[in-house]
Design a protein around this nucleic acid. Structure first.
Lengths: 235, 235
DNA sequence: GAGTGGTCTAGACCACTCA
DNA sequence: GAGTGGTCTAGACCACTCT
């Protein structure tokens, strides 16, 4: 019998969170209990939980124990808050609007981003997010139905795909690509801007276990949108 | 006598790197040696060095030991490569151009960003970075001379402020704010774009020990510039 | 083969925080 | 006061990699 590694402990706890056995807000068993369960030293459990805390998956406090955190904003090096939270923090009212929903063969570029074959179909959504009376973001999203078959049955009329995916596929990996562009006619129309106005574009891809979940193109009015990235290296 | 903490070890090693006693490329003494020097257990040294490696300050390999890394791209959550490296990676020729250098009282916003009083003076630089025949970036920079007095004597004719600061003040903390805008007349002129073209704007602030070193506003042509941010949380 | 980091164990004490 | 995480020690074995 081989010894238990902190990586094993980490993987098991992460698995319990992914599966829902441990839900956000739940308290993870104490280090001593887990050490007993895994038959390893307490330090080993400590390291596993410490790294999960560093990754933002759980929160640890002395007397209170270890709790599972909401899987909301912790998954990016850059702070990309949930659209709703970001807007409501400014005091404006958040409103979500679904403009289109269909299942279709994505354009070549999107197929490549999602790792799909030439004739594979995916779920396409076009949404608009409002902050009060002005448009905060338009969203062009493709969801890989091979990885998230459950999305096929969701209508996304009331809940945006991002909020839904965060719950359905927690703890995924994210890549963001930022750029600036002049709004084309369609974008300007949807955003309520003059054609040619500067827009801030975010392209977001999400993976779980190496499989691409979704690809979103998020377009913001350039005049108002800013994105902050802070170094948090523990020096 | 109190016990030595891994934080003490970390701070001392970091201090030796900051002071230049350990230069990039140097090998840090082995764990056993440091444990002897600090009079602590080897695991304590191990944790200190492991965290420094996680922060990108050093690199560790089994047989080879622990080496101090170049302080170049490791200080941001977002990969913000050095301008030179980014351009040369594409095969284009990098050229740096200093447009203006003066010591003056910065505008109010910059004073606030640098934590300067109403009449404090700072070093102002305006630079342009070329990728082959096209402009890659224009740079509007203020340097806090209270924190970096050595900059007063540097002419920045050949070396850009970013390259110089990386060597002069290694291991600093960074904040980036990204946004999109339409180029104004002056920016369009310097960038070789039509007025109103979309530009990608990065505002970068850097600190060391809680004191603001510098503030730069970097403006890129929106059509070509993209910025990638990947999550690297060790799940 | 030898040297360096990587990790585990068992036991201990401390620090924080809640009741 | 009691329970939980935070950390240190001392010793051990393993894994990788360079010579």
């Amino acid at each position: 019998m081989s010894r238990t590694s902190y990586l094993d402990v980490k993987a098991v706890i992460l698995g319990r969170i992914r599966s829902g056995e441990l839900a956000p807000g739940d308290t993870v068993p104490g280090e001593a209990a887990l050490a007993g369960e895994f038959g390893c030293a307490r330090v080993t459990v400590n390291r596993a939980l410490r790294e999960l805390a560093g990754a933002g998956v759980v929160e640890r406090r002395r007397r209170a124990g270890t709790r599972v955190l909401d899987p909301t904003p912790r998954d990016a090096a850059v702070e990309v808050p949930s659209v709703r939270a970001e807007i409501e923090a400014t005091g404006a009212e958040y409103r979500y609007e679904l403009l289109a929903r269909r299942i279709a063969v994505p354009p070549r570029q999107v197929r490549a981003a999602l790792g799909l074959g030439p004739r594979a179909r995916a779920l396409h959504l076009r949404c608009r997010h409002w902050a009060g009376a002005s448009v905060h973001q338009i969203e062009e999203r493709w969801i890989n139905l091979d990885v998230v078959p459950a999305a096929r049955k969701v209508d996304f009329a009331a809940t945006g795909p991002n909020d839904w995916l965060i719950r359905a596929m927690p703890l995924s990996r994210v890549e963001h690509v930022f750029s600036a562009a002049n709004a084309n006619a369609a974008e300007a129309e949807l955003l309520g801007l003059a054609p040619g106005a500067a827009v801030f574009v975010v392209e977001r891809r999400t993976w779980i276990d190496g499989r691409a979940i979704t690809r979103a193109r998020l377009v913001h009015p350039g005049a108002t949108h800013r994105l902050v990235a802070r170094t948090q290296s523990p020096l």
